[in-house]
Simulated scan of single mutants.
Amino acid sequence: MKVSVSFIAAWLAFVAQAAYDQNRAGAVLKAPSGSAFKSVTGTFTVPEDLTGDNRLSVWVGIGDSLTQTYVLGGGVSFNKTLSTWSGFFPGTSVDTTAAVPASSGDNVTVTVNIETGAGGSVTIENLTQNKKTTQEVSAPGNADPSALTALVADWWVQAYQVIPGELVKVPNFGTITFTGVSATTHNGTNVPVSGAGAYEIQGSSGEMWSNTTISSSGISVRRRAGPGCDASDPCGNQ
């Protein structure tokens, strides 16, 4: 099954310049000054309750900068059915479901390796089904190599639209936790994920639909129950 072009466009439809985003929650980690990322990885469990018209993607990536014009990544998506994919935005993604299918409750590891100024590879491993694939992915053909700087690592839980302009619905995905998280620079430095910035899904009317927590052991994104914020259901990086 081919991942829709509009889904790829929805990856980064809202530029990551603030702690709030209209369709994504998760973490963004900046490389140390003078460095760039070589590899990023994370393991997560595919949500159990995705049904109907809900659309959700859980993925790991490496971007060029906080503006994220170019991003190499891959993960698991739900749009009627579950699929796995890899791609180098804004290029076309590759559906990898035939090699590595995904089912609710499966544990999946995504590892992204990138060459500064070039392409890279995305490895998707379904630990539950014992299936694995590595895709070599070229950078977009019109990209200036000097712009492919690999300065940020990403771990995202993303609701997305298929039709441009369509209202983004945030599925009830429960809590998705990235474990075994690591981000390594080209000189071999492992950058602690505890230094990442948290992003939350905020609706156009100010509703908060996620609560992201980041620690040295991983990243957890919880789907909030409703638009209000209180001690029992807090907003933001609590």
Results as ranks from 00 to 15, higher is better:
Q158H: 09
Q158R: 06
Q158F: 02
A159W: 11
A159M: 12
Q161Y: 10
V162K: 01
I163Q: 02
I163P: 12
P164V: 03
E166I: 02
E166S: 09
L167V: 13
L167E: 15
L167I: 12
V168F: 13
V168D: 08
V168S: 08
K169V: 11
V170F: 13
V170N: 14
P171D: 05
N172R: 02
N172M: 08
N172D: 15
G174N: 00
G174S: 00
G174Y: 01
T175Q: 04
I176C: 10
F178S: 10
F178T: 05
T179P: 08
T179L: 09
G180K: 14
G180H: 02
G180W: 06
V181N: 10
V181K: 07
V181D: 03
V181S: 02
S182P: 05
S182G: 09
A183I: 04
T185F: 08
T185A: 07
T185Q: 00
T185K: 08
H186Q: 12
H186T: 14
H186F: 11
N187W: 04
G188W: 06
G188M: 06
N190I: 10
N190W: 05
N190F: 10
N190V: 15
V191H: 04
V191M: 03
P192G: 03
V193E: 09
S194W: 13
S194T: 12
S194E: 11
G195P: 09
